[in-house]
Simulated scan of single mutants.
Amino acid sequence: MTFEVDPIKFIVHDEPALRGESNYIARVDLAPFGFEDQVEQVWLRRMADDGEAVVCCIPFRACGLALRDMVRLSAESTVIELVRPSGSRALRALIAELDVEGIRRVNAEVQARISQSGLLFEWSGDRHVAIDVPPGADAEAIMDYFDAEEAADRLSWEWSDVVRFRI
């Protein structure tokens, strides 16, 4: 889901993967990743008063971050540093702008494959999904499906860590 405040577009997490563990919301500036005037609002669990926190959502657009990563916040509640990676990776896919039935069909198949895998995931609308892939988890069936759908121009996918986190 997104909403706009002035010229800035916020990417928000309606159902963060670890909502019960979160107690803080901060921002990630998306300009370094090619999304000018966009900010991702991330759910965190503050660890101490030193500005460190654990990521409690699966990033939709921020690169180089994943669920349970330790980050450092600025005084303005902006993520400014990846302190310690959790070892998880975020696998993200965007369903193409198909007709309503096409989006529904691809969405349902993505949901089914994620459910079979037992992995945590979040949706932004009905076309953008972020999946947590912890160390040792098997996401091969999902990736095989994504590869086939990408070849058919029905979705595109990426790992969030193909670009390192930066501000």
Rank of each mutant, 00 (worst) to 15 (best):
D37A: 12
Y24W: 14
N23C: 08
L65V: 05
N23P: 01
A48Q: 14
A31R: 10
V42C: 05
F3P: 02
D49P: 12
C63F: 10
Q38H: 14
F35H: 05
E4S: 12
I8L: 04
R45W: 12
K9D: 07
P59W: 06
L65F: 08
T2P: 04
P7I: 08
V28K: 00
P59F: 07
A26N: 00
R61D: 14
V5C: 08
A26K: 00
G64L: 08
L18F: 14
A17W: 06
V42P: 07
G64F: 05
D6E: 15
S22K: 00
Y24I: 02
L30R: 01
D6C: 03
A62S: 11
E21N: 13
A66T: 07
V5L: 14
L44V: 01
V55D: 03
E40W: 03
A62Q: 03
M1T: 06
I58R: 01
V55K: 01
V12R: 04
L18W: 10
R19F: 11
A66P: 08
D50T: 10
W43G: 00
L30I: 02
G20M: 10
D49R: 15
F35K: 10
L18S: 13
A48Y: 14
H13P: 01
D14N: 15
E40V: 00
D29I: 02
L44S: 09
A48D: 15
G64R: 08
F60I: 04
P7S: 03
I58Q: 12
L44D: 06
D29V: 01
E40Y: 08
D49N: 09
I25A: 09
F33M: 04
L30W: 05
L44F: 09
E40A: 00
L65Q: 00
F33Y: 15
R19W: 08
A26P: 04
M47N: 15
G34H: 05
M47V: 15
T2K: 11
